[in-house]
Design a protein around this nucleic acid. Structure first.
Lengths: 347, 347
DNA sequence: CTGTTAGCGCTTTCAG
DNA sequence: CTGAAAGCGCTAACAG
């Protein structure tokens, strides 16, 4: 084994090396390897062989420095461990790869500070664009100021006009809530993230709208706002169950649904006999549990693909009008919803 | 709103701009902003203010080109959507961030071809190092040849010596299998990935070893090898159940456990009354279902942290001896395992 | 403590 | 079709 353990390796092979090897100038080598510009077949052939033989790998920094833009697209999502964002990223990556771009992903833990850092990193890298699930309004502005195209996914927050891909949160939430109301529930609790995001606002509006549609006054006490990764999330859900005795719960995101599920199980409450449960967003575990959860399914993969397409479109035509694509999030009725339990105590 | 929609923004502000603005030379500006070298407090102050005022973001490509190495560490994992890898990445990111490095992650879908592409991207970026869950043996060699330090996580495959972080797969699998055998099972099926990875080999060895320990001959027909993302995985598991009638299943990774779980549910088999189930790797859904699964828990986050630490150590001292850290994966007994059902038919 | 100088490796006019 | 030359933005000697 002659390989070093890596470290102070011999000087990296450069374009100049392979040019010398093939007896051409660096410019010709550049043309041959990058595929733009005229090169005689013979020269190209020698160059390609030489590059291959020497194990040439172009220096991306040098290229980016010269061209003033790179082939990487930055992606910043709230939580790398959450399936929703993972699917989103998968969709983005898919279409980016087809177009010859490289995705670089960073998680910001829903923290505005980390989001700004991530975005600065991408500016520093001269990313060709950034796709983000925004947490604060500054990030998009920063990018825009540096001439980096932005597309927002899942929610809109930018103070600057930009492309976006979202779902119809209001309608999805309204359908879910209406489904519960139609089954006879009159005390439907809402678990929603404590953010100022359009996604959560939409979900809340939908919940309210469904009540209005049914001519029912919503009860503010049934609405619980939970912060991202709040350690007391489950305590608060338990307290809600104790104090308000809802007969159904609508969890406005997959993390809250998981919390609700844990609490319900821990209390040995039967679903849907004692309490019905609906989740916004469909992730694999929801179909693995018994009863399988009724959900509002978001087309996460497709959202990612669309976002990437919007970015590509803008790269091709920087001046085109910003487009906002709104996808449908449909109710999937499974087994976690049913009629409310018979009332036993009240008059 | 005066912001452009991004695109042909005004020339980016460079170090030279802020130097001019502060009345110093670019070198001084560089020293002040990068924090190395002497700069008078007064000058530093003016420079910092100017940089801030002009919204200066250093050009990473220029810096990398000059320094011949960047502050990014490449991470390549098999499946970005799998919780295990997500946790791993989270651990890596955590310690990398503390050390001032930036993680760039790429998924290779367990395809050797994609792995090589990813790795080439990282050498092109002049990554300070690469942490990978290897799929083929060539990638590490390629990196090594280019002087990029590699650390392998989860399994070892490199043809070149390198740092690694793994778990004691054999022991974990042996414990799990022994647990089943001790409960009285005599037909324990093994679901294992069809790879040539050390992780799966270790898990298989552990399964066999437990049988040997118990003086029981293993039955080759109870061992099912499933390829990554094989579309017929569930059919094969169903067939296994029909034909071999195992009383317990040991799924050697979380994806296979999920498949097994689906099949079991679909067949309305009771766990553990009809069939016991143990999974290697502990992911959230396993505790959400009823019964909660007995698992061999891998310290994924810690594995990521260790891997990053090993890389950092090697960056500091490229010549240090390769170290392989082997962590413990412990059996967590929950509710999916019990004694086998009473035999009803055989003599 | 600060400025001058010289590239890092690549692409891109612009002549030939 | 090919080469010479210049420079992207930054840092690292090395003098001052």
């Amino acid at each position: 084994m002659t390989e070093a353990l890596a470290g102070a390796a011999r000087r990296a092979v450069t374009l100049a090396d392979i040019a010398r090897e093939a007896g051409t100038s660096p410019s010709t080598a550049s043309r041959a390897l990058s595929g733009r510009g005229y090169v005689s077949p013979a020269a190209r052939d020698r160059l390609l062989t030489a590059a291959d033989r020497l194990g040439y790998v172009p220096n991306a920094s040098a290229r980016t420095l010269k061209q003033r833009t790179s082939r990487v697209v930055g992606v910043v999502v709230s939580d790398l461990g959450n399936r929703f964002y993972a699917r989103l990223a998968a969709g983005i990556e898919q279409t980016l790869r087809e177009a010859g771009y490289q995705m670089v992903i960073i998680g910001d833990n829903s923290a505005s500070r980390e989001e700004i850092d991530a975005v600065r990193t991408f500016v520093a890298m001269r990313a060709a664009g950034v796709i983000m699930t925004p947490v604060g309004p500054e990030a998009a502005g920063l990018l825009s100021r540096h001439g980096v195209p932005v597309v927002e996914v899942d929610r809109r927050l930018a103070g600057v006009p930009c492309d976006a891909v979202i779902v119809d949160n209001e309608r999805g939430a309204r359908d879910a809530t209406a489904h519960l109301l139609a089954a006879g529930h009159r005390r439907v609790a809402l678990l929603v993230a404590a953010t100022d995001w359009t996604s959560d606002a939409g979900r809340l509006r939908g919940y309210l709208a469904a009540h209005a549609d049914a001519g029912l006054p919503p009860d503010e006490r049934l609405i619980v706002r939970v912060r991202f990764q709040a350690p007391d999330a489950e305590h608060r859900i338990a307290a809600l169950l104790d104090v308000e005795q809802p007969t159904a719960i609508f969890a406005a995101n997959n993390a809250l649904a998981e919390h609700a599920w844990r609490v319900l199980r821990h209390r040995r409450l039967r679903v849907p006999e004692d309490v019905s449960l609906v989740a916004f967003d469909d992730v694999p575990w929801m179909e693995l549990v018994d009863p399988a959860l009724t959900v509002v399914a978001q087309p996460a993969l497709e959202m990612g693909r669309r976002a990437a397409s919007l970015l590509l479109r803008r790269t091709a035509d920087p001046a085109c009008l910003p487009r906002v694509e709104c996808l449908h999030a449909g109710l999937v009725v499974r087994e976690s919803t049913g009629p409310p339990p018979q009332q036993e105590k009240s008059a």
